[in-house]
Design a protein around this nucleic acid. Structure first.
Length: 565
RNA sequence: GCCGCCGUAGCUCAGCCUGGUGGAGCGCUGCCCUGGUAAGGCAGAGGUCCCGGGUUCAAUUCCCGGCGGCGGCUCCA
């Protein structure tokens, strides 16, 4: 929908008009992403522009573009150090004024017909340098512009923060603290269903679930290295003269379990899993709804393995990740897979790194999974494979992760006895399939627009009697479903039928059972699903059979209803 | 943490610029309506205008600080 060349042209013209209008803003370049342009300026006065500049700039861009008074000429690659800091930049002359652009994009020759500057913010490419950044979108076609506006409005409606409140799933409260989610009853149902799913996956993969404390003595965090590398994100407290740290990760507890006895090569791989709630004191500005919180629950797991077992482990984990995508119907377009390799600073031998990296590669290749390699982006302790999902606004979030780790086995001096009786060091694999319950739930809500599949829905069926005299029949129907384990509510309120249907729809309840005199007499029900699909004269036991199967199989579609249509 | 914007009823927001203690819609409560498929009618309750300080005869309104939210950086599950 957004075209890079058009964004690039808009960025150049914007640099021109802004520097003309505000003398102390000097163009510093524009980069183009899939969600818009980011246009930077150096403030020569040290001041910040007024909010009104946005509207003025938009108007000026359109004026000048409309009167076809723009001449854009390519000058060459930029040598200015500050501007190069933003990435490789090309210099252009816009009506004689210098403006800069991301090197890889070329500006469009067609003029900009619509431009929307969405925000003025700061960009800090490096500590101490603060640039004025205008972000926005631009189009050379008004229909495309209108289409984008519509898409954007829709995206706002899918926002998990909005839906989370509307559907009464969870909340954040000033008194509780930022980044600390409070799940309401309905959100807790979703959470528990996801956890149940995780437990099934884990047991399929051969993990044993464990449970470890939320705080440990700092001594343990010193051994693990977190005390030095991660302390600024940890919650520490001194009690009885001893310092304790709330866990930001679950690994140390699992390692203690591994170390609790001598392990044989025959015992490996040892797979431990935990729905581990961790706390990471992320900086305030980094928090974002459920997607970035301070306290969250990982579907964590650690494998203690021989090097030759890594590939197989990775393969089986990736397979489950893909099952997950299918289960929720998450489009491949909305996922990205990265393989991150050895960074400049690393621990462990080159040989071990190569072996582990190759194991990851082979596993991905054998599964035929397309992925991007990010050279040098691995953790200092090992290479990793990450799966990222896209949210409603097009931003990417890391969820599933598989990390090979040479560091912790060394720090904790882990070993097993090999077949020849010698002591060997196992490798550790850290992995999470959902990533965290919180982030995954947010992605799901946005991907599904709040319309969770029946098995995940806090309320699965609402029974609505048309008149009061069939209320008891409605209650009978509800009881029947409830006894079968279905989450059901009866709406016996005095509202009109239309109103009660609307309310149920707004709560995203997948099934409405509507009963009147006719149904009560015939002992049937009318079943209404999403998208105004309805089946009449349905036998209760037939529907219940379909419904329980739909829930059991975690169907994405409303199978129980579709079979009656 | 940095830059900008914002904080008014349970929710979404108007009022603030130009100081004289506040409104709407939804929701909630009550009454009427007993409805055949996406908002029936009437009435009522509900506010420390985020917190603290300053200016002023007087602050929801102006100024400063804090806390919280949003967008963008940086960072991450």
């Amino acid at each position: 929908m957004l075209r890079p060349e058009v964004l690039a042209r808009a960025g150049l013209v914007l640099q021109y008009v802004v520097s003309k209008e505000v003398g102390w803003l000097r163009p510093a370049g524009c980069s183009v992403a899939e969600d818009g342009f980011k246009c930077d300026f150096i403030s020569l006065s040290g001041r910040w522009p007024e909010e009104g500049l946005i509207r003025d700039a938009e108007k000026m861009v359109l004026d000048i573009e409309g009167s076809s008074q723009v001449s854009i000429e390519y000058v060459g690659e930029v040598s200015d150090d500050l501007i190069r800091l933003l990435g490789r930049r090309a210099a252009y002359s816009v009506n004689g004024v210098n403006a800069f652009l991301e090197f890889e994009v070329r500006p469009a020759s067609s003029s900009v017909k619509a431009i929307l500057v969405r925000n003025i913010s700061a960009h800090n490419p490096t500590p101490g340098v603060s640039l004025v950044r205008l972000i926005g979108v631009a189009f050379d076609d008004l229909d495309e512009y209108r289409e984008w506006v519509k898409y954007y409005e829709e995206a706002a409606r899918r926002d998990h923060r909005v839906l989370g409140q509307k559907l009464e799933l969870f909340g954040f409260y000033d008194e509780a603290g930022p980044g600390l989610v409070i799940y309401h009853p309905k959100g807790q149902v979703v959470r528990e269903e996801l956890i149940r799913l995780v437990r099934e996956i884990n047991s399929r993969l051969g993990y044993s679930e464990v449970y470890t404390p939320h705080v440990y003595k700092s001594v343990l965090w010193r051994i693990s290295g977190h005390y030095h590398l991660y302390r600024d994100k940890m919650v520490l407290a001194e009690v009885d003269g001893e310092e304790y740290g709330v866990k930001p990760m679950n690994c140390p507890g699992h390692i203690l379990i591994f170390k609790s006895r001598t392990r044989s090569y025959r015992d490996l791989p040892i797979r431990l899993a935990e729905l581990g709630t961790v706390y990471r004191w992320e900086k305030r500005g980094e928090l974002y709804g459920l997607l970035r919180v301070r306290g969250f629950t990982q579907d964590d797991g650690h494998v203690f393995a021989r090097e030759d077992q890594v590939k197989e482990e990775v393969e089986s984990i990736m397979r489950e990740v893909f099952n997950l995508l299918a289960l929720f119907g998450i489009a491949r377009d909305n996922t990205k897979i990265y393989l991150s390799t050895r960074p400049e600073r690393y621990i462990g031998s080159e040989d071990a790194w190569d072996k582990a990296t190759n194991s990851l590669k082979q596993a991905l290749d054998e599964l035929g999974i397309p992925y991007e390699v990010r050279e040098g982006e691995g953790a200092f302790y090992g290479p990793k494979v990450d799966v990222h999902f896209r949210d409603s606004l097009g931003r990417w979030w890391q969820c599933s992760t598989i990390q090979v780790d040479f560091a912790l086995p060394e720090r904790f001096n882990l070993e097993y006895i090999d077949s020849d009786g010698s002591k060997k060091r196992p490798v550790m694999i850290h992995r999470a399939i959902l990533g965290s319950i919180e982030r995954f739930m947010a992605i799901l809500i946005e991907e599904l627009e709040g319309k969770l599949p029946t098995w995940l829905s806090p309320i699965q069926v609402a029974v609505i009697p048309i008149t009061r005299d069939v209320a008891s029949y409605a209650e009978d129907v509800a009881k029947l479903l409830r006894d079968a384990g279905v989450r059901v509510v009866e709406d016996l309120s005095d509202e009109t039928l239309e109103k009660r249907i609307k309310v149920a729809y707004e709560q995203a309840i997948p099934y409405l059972i509507i009963v009147g005199r006719r149904e009560a007499l015939q002992k049937t029900i009318a079943v209404r699903g999403r998208g105004n699909l309805q089946a009449n004269n349905v036998r209760i036991d037939a529907f219940l059979r379909g419904l329980t199967e739909e829930i059991r199989s975690r169907a994405l579609r409303q199978e129980a209803l579709l079979s009656f249509l």
